[in-house]
Amino acid sequence: MFIAYVIVVVVTIAANAGVAAVDVLRPALPLANSAEVGVPPSWLPWLAALKAAGAAGLLLGLLGVPYLGTAAATGLVLFFVGAVAVHIRSRVFHNFAFPAGYLGLAVASLAACLLVAP
């Protein structure tokens, strides 16, 4: 079970760190996607910081602070539930797989943290 926990959490860390970096770099596609669902460009750095904090918290959880990892996973679940809700509210479904996929990773990480953490 520990190996599955490590794999799921490492994939979630990489995915969230990567998307946070993309949000900071502000290429055209994320700007267009966020505008389409009504998120102003000025929010992107803050949203990127939340994703990066979630990734950092998961990493610290792997490195021996399990409750921080669980808290980070919980925060990412809440973040991506919000992202999915924004997509549903805006009726933007052509790129719905992205927030839903990140939500799936966050839920899997939270489940793994809860099963493995003391």
Rank of each mutant, 00 (worst) to 15 (best):
I3G: 01
I7P: 00
V9C: 05
V11L: 14
V11Q: 06
T12H: 00
I13A: 08
A14P: 01
A14T: 08
A14Y: 08
A14K: 04
A14E: 12
N16E: 05
N16F: 10
G18T: 07
V19L: 11
V22Q: 03
D23G: 13
D23K: 13
V24I: 14
P27C: 07
L29R: 14
L31M: 12
A32Y: 00
S34C: 08
A35N: 13
A35Y: 06
E36A: 15
E36D: 15
G38P: 06
P40W: 01
P40D: 06
P41T: 04
W43Q: 11
W46L: 12
L47F: 05
A48L: 06
A48T: 07
K51D: 02
A52F: 10
A55N: 12
A55K: 12
L58V: 11
L60S: 10
G61A: 07
G61V: 05
L62G: 09
V65L: 15
Y67C: 04
Y67R: 14
G69E: 05
A71D: 03
A71K: 05
L76V: 08
L76S: 08
L76N: 04
V77H: 03
F79D: 03
F79G: 04
F79R: 04
G82E: 04
V84T: 09
A85M: 10
V86A: 15
V86Y: 03
H87R: 05
I88W: 11
I88M: 13
S90K: 15
V92Y: 13
F93V: 06
F93A: 08
H94R: 15
A97R: 10
A97Q: 12
P99V: 11
P99S: 10
G101I: 01
L103V: 10
L105Q: 02
A106S: 10
A106Q: 00
C113M: 12
A117C: 11
A117F: 02
P118K: 10
P118D: 13
